[in-house]
């Protein structure tokens, strides 16, 4: 694992992206201390241009709320929801994939048909349906995103398990007398996970986007700042006051890009033998 870390650290783009994400997460976590302005409070004149007032460096929105504060608090929602959703989809997907790959036969068939069923509905529509039924709370947004994205990890894990099961080192583990549960846990899962981890990392990016899209449509909690909601609010005055949308748009762009770069870096770093001569 330290090996993988060293390989990751040698990839400048991935490292930079990881540092950027860490800084963003830190800024979001420490938002009340870094920039102690209430994101929901009317704090200045409406539609203040950026870089004109040091009290509101990024300007204000139509209600006179500070955009920097809203951006930082919005990052909280976006990142937390996206991370939780990616984690949940990884967990559900791996469990289903592992069960299907190990059990084989009818259980495999059944689980894969369920996976098919989820995959036939476009992910965003599925998330939309979930949120409209469950309500706009952050938890239901997480669940909605997870429900629309667990099929990827499930398929990857199952395919990995099936190909691993024929490999010599798995047969060797059987021959040495490792119990089935232990083979699944210690041998199969660690070898099946890396491609899934890289996939899950990239799926954080799509989770950020889905969350923003749901907020943009007004389906997420309207009382909390979020990047998607900010873009939606800016839409009305997009032509005359574009920065209202530009700031959250930029934040979204940078985050998604960084997450993807980290995902790619992980993929390279976790494949110990592919990278070697």
């Amino acid at each position: 694992m330290s090996d993988a870390f060293a390989r990751f650290a040698r990839n400048p783009a991935a490292l930079l992206a990881a540092l950027l994400l860490a800084a963003l997460a830190l800024a979001a976590a420490l938002a009340p201390r870094l920039w102690p302005i209430d994101p929901e409070a009317v704090d200045g004149p409406p539609l203040l241009h950026p870089f004109t007032d040091p009290a509101h460096p990024l300007g204000t929105d139509r209600l006179g709320r500070d955009l920097l504060a809203r951006l930082l608090f919005g990052a909280r929602i976006s990142l937390v929801v996206a991370l939780a959703a990616a984690f949940a989809s990884l967990l559900i997907g791996s469990a289903v994939g592992l069960a299907a790959g190990l059990a084989g036969g009818r259980i495999d068939d059944l689980l894969m048909r369920i996976t098919d069923a989820f995959q036939t509905v476009p992910g965003f529509l599925l998330a939309l349906a979930f949120v409209s039924v469950l309500g706009p709370e952050a938890e239901s947004v997480v669940l909605a995103i997870a429900a629309s994205s667990w099929t990827g990890p499930a398929r990857i894990v199952r395919a990995e398990i099936l190909s691993l099961a024929r490999r010599d080192f798995v047969l060797a583990a059987v021959a040495v007398g490792l119990p089935r549960v232990e083979i699944a846990w210690r041998v199969l899962l660690p070898n099946a996970l890396p491609p899934v981890l890289a996939y899950a990392c990239a799926s954080i990016a799509s989770a950020v986007l889905i969350e923003s899209a749901l907020s943009f449509l007004g389906l997420a909690d309207p009382n909390r700042a979020s990047w998607g909601a900010m873009i939606a609010e800016g839409r009305a005055v997009l032509v005359r006051e574009p920065w209202l949308s530009i700031w959250p748009g930029l934040a979204l762009l940078v985050t998604v890009l960084a997450v993807n770069l980290v995902g790619e870096g992980l993929d390279d770093a976790l494949a110990p033998r592919r990278a070697r001569p």
Partner: peptide, 18 residues
């Protein structure tokens, strides 16, 4: 356990991640 297999390709026979 009393009957052990030694494989042709030792790289394939060892778990690469442990």
């Amino acid at each position: 356990a009393g009957l052990q297999l030694v494989f042709q390709d030792p790289l394939a026979a060892l778990d690469p991640r442990r």
